[in-house]
Amino acid sequence: MSVSLSSWATEVFGKQAPAVRAGVGQALRNMQANAQAAQEQAESRTNHTYGSARWQGQFERVWEELKDLPGATPVKPFGFPFELMVVGNGLLYPFLYSKTTSDVRTARIPRESRLVKELFTFAPDPAEVQGAFDFEGFDESAQVVEPRGGLASVPRGTRLVLVPFACNASELLEAYWGIAALGAERRLVWETVPEALTLPDTVTSHGQHLRSFPKQATSSERELTNFDGGAEPTLTLSSRANVDQQRDVPPLTEAEPADDQTSEDDANH
């Protein structure tokens, strides 16, 4: 079934808009499945494993789904461990906005980090909230943020496309995309109506995934590798000659090491 696209999506992503929309939805489905699998394999009483795998997957799964699209370019922000995807004139930024079903129009950015500030240099300017004469203590230079790392090479005409999603360790609830400014207290001021993304039921795989645990050593096998395991060595004892004892010659406890006949220079010959 075809899904109609918003005019802003076609404007930002061009002909790739349908593929980007489908790819992002698929990426989030894969993210959730991978994170749940990691949590199950960890057999942990907390959801820390799920959370870590989900955070990693929200970027890496998007990269997997979109990297082969014509014009798709991964960019790595300064100090950030993952790559974000630029397709056409759109810079995609997925983030968790809720762990329950919630009104995305009231969503907030989880944390106003330096990365977030750099990303929002590609977003619309926020509405003015300061009074016309309320400038006391205002340092204009402190407000200037310049993109660093891979973001510095992103064309200035590029637009930040937010991908807020809601999920928890049990299920992926919903996902949206749209364009918004960063308002006061990390609130999003939407320029476009947040558009729901289609989340497929099936999971796709783009590589080798852990399907079974490596063979674990048995208790008997571990005994053979312990430092105090195995048979005791046989020691050969010999008495010193009377002449050595009379001359106070020190006993020889171990053989003198033989000169090494090889050196690093040998590798060059």
Rank of each mutant, 00 (worst) to 15 (best):
A175Q: 06
R61L: 11
A231W: 07
F135P: 00
S52Q: 10
D260L: 13
E65K: 01
Q261P: 06
E174W: 02
V249W: 12
G149F: 03
T46S: 15
E264D: 11
R222Q: 14
Q245V: 15
F59K: 01
A184R: 10
N168R: 08
F13D: 03
S141G: 10
Q26H: 13
L188A: 05
V24Y: 00
V249C: 04
L91W: 00
E11C: 04
R222M: 15
V104P: 03
L115K: 06
L224I: 09
G51C: 07
K215V: 14
V116Q: 08
R45N: 09
H48C: 05
A181N: 07
Q208M: 09
A72E: 04
L172W: 06
T236Y: 09
A72M: 05
H48R: 13
W55C: 03
R211A: 13
N268Q: 10
S7H: 10
G230P: 02
M31C: 15
L188F: 01
G131S: 08
P214L: 02
M31K: 09
G51M: 04
P233Y: 07
E254C: 12
W177P: 08
R114Q: 14
S113M: 08
S239M: 11
D201G: 15
S141E: 15
L182E: 06
S170R: 15
S4D: 13
F133A: 13
V129N: 04
G149L: 02
E64N: 12
C167D: 14
Q208W: 06
E60N: 11
P194A: 01
T121R: 09
V161W: 01
P257M: 03
F80E: 01
E146Q: 13
L160Y: 01
N168A: 10
D266W: 07
E40Q: 13
D228V: 06
A35I: 01
A166N: 10
Y93T: 01
F165V: 05
A255F: 09
Q261F: 03
L96P: 05
